[in-house]
Amino acid sequence: MKAIAIIFRQSPHGNAAGREALDLALMAATYEQQVHLIFIDEGVLNLLGNQQPELIGCKDYIATFKALDLYEVASVIVSEVSLCGFGLDKTALVYPATVADDGQIRQLLEQVDEVLVF
């Protein structure tokens, strides 16, 4: 088993990055890998509630974040700096992610076997 960190660093819906990152996360978790999701910079916007991507012809993968516990991912981390930068807090999120500072995120990047950035 490998520990994998998957970083979301881009806004949702403008391209396929967020959906692909989530697909990979669920796939890896299904294969019983230890999966950590990390949301930084504009990537934190993936976790916002009340999104309606179907209005602009995009698949609503955001709803799937709510199922992360069933997939037994190891952790879901959201950057405090990035959240604050957009004037957001935890209550706006569709999944109760753990809020972490950059130092804590760096530690996690050191601990895992692989880091994949989307």
Partner: peptide
């Protein structure tokens, strides 16, 4: 083009 360098610099050791 992207925030790749900016993100790397946030977590560089």
């Amino acid at each position: 083009e992207s925030n790749a360098l900016a993100c790397a610099l946030r977590f560089v050791g």
